[in-house]
Nucleic acid binder design. Sequence first.
DNA 1: TCAATTGATGACTAATGGGTCACATTGTAC
DNA 2: GTACAATGTGACCCATTAGTCATCAATTGA
Lengths: 225, 225
Amino acid sequence: MKDHTDQAGQDSSLREPISRKEREKRAREMEILKAARDLFVANGFRETTLDEIARHAEFGKGTIYNYFASKEELFLGIIDQTMDEVLAICNDAIAVPGDAREKFLRYASGVIRYVKENGELLHVIYHELHRGSSTVNVTKLREILDRARRGWEVLARPLTDATQNRLAGTCDPVQLAVLFDGMLRGYCFHRFSIEGSQQVEDYSDAAELITSVFFDGIAERTHEG
Amino acid sequence: MKDHTDQAGQDSSLREPISRKEREKRAREMEILKAARDLFVANGFRETTLDEIARHAEFGKGTIYNYFASKEELFLGIIDQTMDEVLAICNDAIAVPGDAREKFLRYASGVIRYVKENGELLHVIYHELHRGSSTVNVTKLREILDRARRGWEVLARPLTDATQNRLAGTCDPVQLAVLFDGMLRGYCFHRFSIEGSQQVEDYSDAAELITSVFFDGIAERTHEG
DNA sequence: TCAATTGATGACTAATGGGTCACATTGTAC
DNA sequence: GTACAATGTGACCCATTAGTCATCAATTGA
C-alpha cells in the first residue's frame, strides 16, 4: 500500500492510480490528523477548539473542513489510528515466542510505553466510548467497541490453553485479558496522572510486577498441589 | 461561625447551634447536590447544563448560585461526597475479620455494587482528575488526589504483612492496591460500558474471580515450595 | 496569456451555556 | 397590617466555538 512516485513515466504508473495530487491531499490529511492528535493528547477532545487545531496544523480553519466533515469525524480518524496501534501492540505481543507469560510481559511493556508517549489519548478515547449516546454517531461507536474487543480476544488466545491458565475451563479468557488490561491502565493512571511522573526511564520493572501478579498472585505459595 | 438564632430562649438551644433556617438551607443544598449528581452520573460533567440541573432540582437557575459559587464548586461538592463514600467502602472492607483476601473480597464487591449504582460517576471524576490544569482549581485538586491516595493506603495496610503478601518486602503495597483497583475498574468498564450490562443481579462471582486472580494468579500451581 | 477550475482562507453566523441582576415572593418583627 | 429582610427567579448578557461561505490565490490547460 505504499505509493512509489514514478515521475519519469514508467509503465508501472498504470498500476498505480494515486496521482501526485492525491498523494499531497493524503499528506495534508495526515498533517491535520497529527496536529489534532497532539492537541487532543495534551488537552482532551472537548477542550480542544478547531481554531487551535487549524493554527497548530498551519492551515486555515475552513481548510480543515475540506478534509473532515466535522470535529467528530476528525476525532474518529484519530481513534482509528489509535485502535490500529493498540491492536498492533496486541499482535506483536502474542507473536513473541514462549508461553503466555512472556507474551503478556511484552504486551505490558508495550502498553506502558504507549501510554507514556501518547499521554491521555487512550483515556480520552475510553471516556468518549463510555458515554456512547451524545457525542459520537452510534454505528461508528459500535465498530470502535468491536475493535477494542478484538484486541482482548487476541490477548485471550494463549489463555485458552489449560497449561497456561489454571482457570481455562472455569471462566472466560477474554474476561481475564480485561483484568490484565485493567491493571495496566490502573498502573498508568497512578504513575502518570496521580504521582507526577518523576522521570523514571525504565518501566520494565512495572511490566514484570504486573505480569507476575497476574500469573502468580501475591499470596504466599503453600504446598497444596 | 454558625449563627444561632435561639428565638424561644431555651437553654438546650445553646447546645444546638443549628437553627431551623440553617437546617432547611442544608436540606436544599443537598437537594441541589442530589439533582446535579443524578445528571452528572447520567450524562457527565461537561455535558450537563446548569439549566438542566435547576430544572431537575426544581429551583430557578439563580437559586443554584445562592448555594454554590459556580458549576465547578457544585461538582467539587459531589466529588467530596463520592470520595467519602469510596473511603467508607475501603474502611468497611479492612474492618472485615479474617485475612487480606477476605478484606479485598469485600472491597471488590463493594466497589462493583457502587459502580453499578452510580454509573459512570467515578469515571467522570477520574477523567476530571486526569486533566488537572484547566477545569478545576489546583489546590482543591491536590486535596482530592490526596484522598484517593488515602483510600489506597487503607487498602494497602493488610498487605504490609509478609504472611499476607509474598511481595511484601519487594514492592510498595500501595502499588499492589492500585493494581487491584485497576482490575476492578477494568472489570466494571467492560461489564457496564462495553457489554451492555445484561441484567445480571449478582456480581459476587466477579468479585471472587478478581480476588482469586489477585491472590493466587492464573498460572497452574507447580510444586515449587 | 488568459480563462477556468481547484483549493485555501478567516471574517461571519448561530447556537450554546455559564454567570448576573433587577425584580418578585416569602418570611419575620412589631 | 406594614415595613423590612432574606431568599427565589428567569430574562438577559456575553464569551466561546462549531461550522459556513464569499473571496482570494494557485494551478492547469489551451
